[in-house]
Amino acid sequence: HTCEKCSTSIANQAVRIQEGRYRHPGCYTCADCGLNLKMRGHFWVGDELYCEKHAR
């Protein structure tokens, strides 16, 4: 898989955010504040991922 955020190959663990879309665990972050979304879930606003606070 290729990380959709940093565009590099994912060798080990990948986070599947949608069918066919993956990120490194470290790239699974809010587009606004950079908070890691692991164990928090994500919210779509347009084509970007946000934490609950910044999705509003």
Rank of each mutant, 00 (worst) to 15 (best):
D47T: 11
L35C: 07
E48T: 06
C27K: 04
H42E: 14
H42D: 13
P25G: 10
A14D: 05
Y22I: 01
A11R: 07
K5D: 14
R21D: 07
Y50C: 06
R56W: 05
I17E: 05
S7A: 13
M39K: 13
Y28F: 04
C27R: 00
K5E: 12
G20N: 12
K38C: 06
A11S: 14
S7F: 08
D47I: 09
D32C: 07
K5M: 10
Y28L: 06
I17D: 07
T29C: 07
C33E: 00
C30N: 01
H54L: 02
W44A: 14
L35D: 14
H24V: 02
H24E: 03
C27F: 00
H54Y: 06
V45A: 12
A14M: 03
K38F: 03
E52L: 08
M39Q: 12
R21G: 06
E19M: 08
A31R: 12
H24G: 03
C30H: 01
G41M: 04
I17L: 09
H42M: 08
P25I: 11
T29H: 11
V45Q: 09
Y50M: 13
K53F: 10
Q18S: 12
R23I: 01
T29L: 09
N36S: 11
A14Q: 05
I17K: 04
A14C: 08
V15C: 05
E52I: 03
R40F: 08
C33Q: 00
T8A: 15
T2E: 02
V45T: 02
T2A: 02
S7N: 05
G46V: 07
I10P: 05
S7V: 08
G46T: 07
A31I: 03
A11T: 11
D47P: 10
V45I: 15
R40N: 15
S9Y: 00
G41L: 03
L49A: 08
M39H: 09
A14P: 13
R56C: 13
T8F: 09
R40D: 12
P25A: 13
A31Y: 07
Q18F: 05
R40K: 14
G34F: 07
T2S: 02
T2M: 03
V45P: 04
R56E: 15
K53E: 15
E4S: 12
D32L: 09
G41H: 01
A14N: 11
H42C: 11
G20S: 05
C51F: 00
Y22H: 04
C30S: 00
R56V: 12
D32E: 08
H54W: 00
E52Y: 00
A14W: 08
G26V: 13
P25L: 13
C33M: 00
